[in-house]
Amino acid sequence: MLERTRHKNTTQVTFVVAADHPCGEVSVVGDFNDWQPGTHPLRARKDGTRAITVAMPTEQRVRFRYLAHGDYWFDEDSADGHDGTNCYVHT
């Protein structure tokens, strides 16, 4: 799930996954962090999900994917679209 908060010059995008699926550590990687795994790890929230919020410039199309333990890559079902390889979100 994606949550967005728009501000004047930035959009805060919160990337959210279930607490138990997939198992182990999960990070979001994409254009905004030069595709570096582990830069934006998702953390447990009180509602039982895991999430990370990333501030990005507004009016951008940002590509991303999730990376879980064991080199397991997966997509976001609620992304704005998919380019054939990666998900994307409009900020």
Rank of each mutant, 00 (worst) to 15 (best):
V17T: 04
F15S: 00
C23Q: 14
D34I: 06
T39P: 01
R65E: 01
F32S: 05
H40K: 13
N33G: 10
V26R: 02
G38F: 10
F64R: 01
E25V: 02
E25T: 11
T14R: 14
Y66W: 09
V17G: 02
T58C: 13
T53E: 11
S27N: 13
K46A: 05
G48I: 08
W35G: 09
A51D: 00
G24T: 09
H40V: 03
R65V: 04
G48Y: 05
T49W: 03
P57N: 05
R61L: 04
C23A: 13
V28A: 06
G38P: 05
Q36M: 11
S27Q: 02
Q60D: 03
V54D: 06
F15L: 02
A18T: 10
L42Q: 04
R63M: 03
C23G: 09
A51S: 09
G24P: 10
D20Y: 14
L42R: 02
V16D: 01
T14W: 07
N33D: 11
A51Q: 06
A19F: 06
P57G: 09
T14K: 14
N33S: 14
W35P: 01
K46M: 04
V29R: 11
I52Q: 07
V16P: 03
R50P: 02
A68E: 15
F32W: 14
T53P: 13
E25W: 05
L42A: 04
K46D: 15
D47A: 02
H21T: 15
T58H: 15
F64G: 03
K46R: 06
S27P: 02
E59T: 10
T39Q: 12
V16I: 15
E25S: 13
I52P: 03
V62K: 00
S27E: 07
G48T: 07
R61G: 01
V62P: 00
R43K: 12
N33V: 13
Y66P: 01
R45I: 02
T53G: 09
H21M: 09
Q36K: 07
T58K: 13
M56N: 07
E59Q: 11
T14N: 04
V26Y: 07
A51M: 07
R65S: 09
V13R: 03
V28D: 00
W35A: 14
P22S: 12
H21L: 10
V13I: 09
T53H: 10
G24H: 13
D47P: 04
P22T: 10
R50N: 02
F64K: 01
P37R: 15
R43L: 08
A55M: 08
T14E: 15
Y66F: 15
M56D: 11
V26D: 08
H21I: 10
R65Y: 03
D20I: 08
T14Y: 05
S27V: 06
N33Q: 12
G30S: 12
